[in-house]
Simulated assay, not measured.
Amino acid sequence: MIDVKLPAALASECGGARHLTVDVKAGATLADVLDQIETTHPRLGRRLRDEAGKLRRYVNIYIGDDESRRLEGLATPVEGHDIQILPSIAGGA
């Protein structure tokens, strides 16, 4: 079981939940977790990945303390780690 933490900005895509528990098999990757999320919460899945299945550029996913793009991207093993999803925030003065 993997705990996936969501920001308030994405909670509306999955019924207001700020945490999801995803049941994945041993050796699962980030792609497997996102596949499972898309199965149960298709709107959230579309906000995280594009039509080609790649992570959208404004979405940052942390596996433990490391950003997934600095690891193995969607191929990163997730076993034993919590996941946190954070959309990029733009702004300024």
Rank of each mutant, 00 (worst) to 15 (best):
L30H: 00
D50E: 03
T76S: 14
Y58M: 11
A11S: 14
V22S: 02
G64C: 10
D65T: 11
G73I: 08
T29Q: 10
R70Q: 15
K5W: 11
R69K: 14
D66K: 12
I63K: 05
T76M: 07
I83A: 03
I63F: 05
L74Y: 06
V78M: 06
A8M: 05
R43K: 15
T29V: 06
P42M: 10
Q36K: 14
L20S: 08
S12I: 11
V33H: 07
S12T: 14
T29M: 07
C14H: 01
R56V: 00
L55A: 05
A90N: 10
E13Y: 12
G92W: 09
R46E: 12
D3T: 15
D65G: 09
D23H: 12
A90I: 13
E38L: 07
E72T: 06
A93S: 15
R57G: 10
A31V: 09
A9N: 08
R49M: 06
D50Y: 06
P87G: 01
S88T: 12
L48G: 01
V33K: 04
T76C: 08
A90R: 12
L55G: 02
A28G: 06
Y58Q: 12
D32F: 07
A75L: 12
D82K: 10
N60S: 12
A8L: 09
E79G: 12
P7M: 02
G64R: 09
M1R: 14
H41I: 03
L30T: 03
Y62M: 05
H41D: 09
D3I: 14
D65E: 14
D66H: 13
A75T: 13
D23C: 10
I83K: 01
V24P: 00
R57W: 07
I61Q: 00
D50T: 05
Q36A: 15
I37G: 02
D35R: 10
G80F: 08
G15F: 04
I83F: 04
T29L: 08
S12A: 10
I63P: 04
M1H: 13
L20F: 08
A8C: 02
A93G: 15
I61S: 00
D3L: 15
G45H: 01
K5R: 15
H81T: 00
I37S: 03
R57A: 10
S68M: 02
G91I: 02
R49L: 07
R49Y: 10
P87D: 06
A11K: 01
P7Y: 01
V59I: 15
R43W: 07
A11W: 00
D66C: 10
A31D: 14
R47M: 11
L30K: 00
A8H: 03
E38F: 05
L48V: 08
D35T: 14
E38W: 01
Q36D: 14
D32L: 04
A8P: 01
G16K: 02
D50M: 01
V22A: 07
L44W: 00
R57Q: 12
D3S: 15
H19N: 14
T40S: 14
K25L: 15
E13P: 00
D66F: 11
L86R: 11
V78L: 05
K5E: 14
D35I: 01
V78E: 02
A8Y: 01
I85H: 00
A52L: 15
S68Y: 10
